[in-house]
């Protein structure tokens, strides 16, 4: 296992009666492109705000790089939260120089970063003259200053047009290929599926699922099954540990096959219970369906 970059343990934060983050535990390892996936208001930004020291926590703990949090910790992390935050009257270069000052590093890499995010030509223009896409790219550039080990990007494609989205995604992928750990908050499944290696699904501040993205897409299978006595079938499937969440739809019962269970196991089990099945198909479900299923179960 790669070394642990961020370890979150039972983190909690409430705003009045609303639990923004509810006993959240996560582990993120070196080299992962880790997505915090969830609808708006699921606690993604609050979680990132807490681990970056911008928001005070109510309970739990977190640890970066297996060390005590201190003033130098944040200089090893490049981050943007929600929207790009810069001084509107300052040029791209000056805004990045200010961040370099805060991180106590030289300005040497700034031109290179501006080139990388495609803003070198506009480096002297005031930030307020930038389009939203350019602002987002400058924000990613700002996160790259000081060659940090970890990048935190919160909704980096929010509000962008398709071309802008494609540019940012290509940029993130190229950064990931450099071997950096990336933590990305997003409410777009498609985005997570395309860029990320690992995912934690959040809803109402709780972690509903965490694991590898490809495992989730590849190995999660739905079975569609039918027998003469559908009621008995539903009952037996509900009792069976090899599947999850069976439900009746369009004259079939659908259920998730739990990893390790094969169709043969299922058939065998039902046969043992005296049920003869007359239909059995397996479908791989997309992350989107999976995500919606997870959320639907928790309503």
């Amino acid at each position: 296992m790669e070394p642990c970059i961020l370890n979150i343990n039972e983190l909690s934060k409430s705003y009045g009666r609303i639990k923004a983050v509810d006993k959240l535990s996560l582990e993120i390892h070196k080299g992962e492109v880790f997505a915090l996936l969830g609808p708006n208001g699921s606690g993604k930004t609050t979680t990132l705000g807490i681990v970056l020291g911008a928001i005070d926590l109510d309970g739990g703990s977190y640890q970066w790089f297996d060390e005590e949090f201190n003033s130098t910790t944040l200089r090893r992390i490049g981050s943007i939260l929600e929207v790009p935050l810069f001084y509107p009257f300052m040029s791209a270069t000056d805004n990045l120089k200010l961040i370099a000052d805060i991180k106590r590093i030289s300005y040497d890499g700034i031109d290179e970063i501006l080139t990388q995010v495609g803003l070198y030509q506009r480096r002297g223009s005031a930030f307020r003259t930038f389009s939203l896409g350019m602002k987002q790219r400058l924000a990613v550039g700002a996160a790259l200053i000081g060659n940090p080990e970890v990048l935190i990007l919160d909704e980096p494609t929010n509000g962008l047009d398709p071309q802008g989205i494609a540019e940012i995604r290509t940029l993130i992928k190229s950064i990931a290929e450099m071997g950096k750990t990336i933590i990305l908050a997003s409410h777009l499944l498609d985005e997570v599926q395309k860029i990320c290696s690992h995912v934690a699904v959040l809803d109402h501040g709780k972690c509903l699922f965490t694991g590898r993205v490809d495992n989730m897409i590849g190995k999660t299978r739905m079975v569609e099954i039918a027998a003469d006595d559908m009621n008995a079938l539903l009952l037996e499937l509900t009792a069976y540990e090899g599947v999850m969440n069976p439900f009746l739809i369009d004259g079939y019962i659908k259920a998730e096959l739990i990893n390790g269970t094969t169709p043969a196991d299922l058939n065998n089990y039902l046969f043992g219970k005296g049920l003869i099945i007359n239909h059995l198909t397996i479908e791989k479900i997309s992350l989107e369906k999976y995500f919606l299923n997870i959320l639907a179960d928790n309503v």
Partner: peptide, 14 residues
């Protein structure tokens, strides 16, 4: 209003 205070803190200014 620019929220730069938040950005400074997450950039490592104590």
């Amino acid at each position: 209003s620019y929220k730069t205070i938040r950005q400074h803190i997450i950039n490592g200014l104590s």
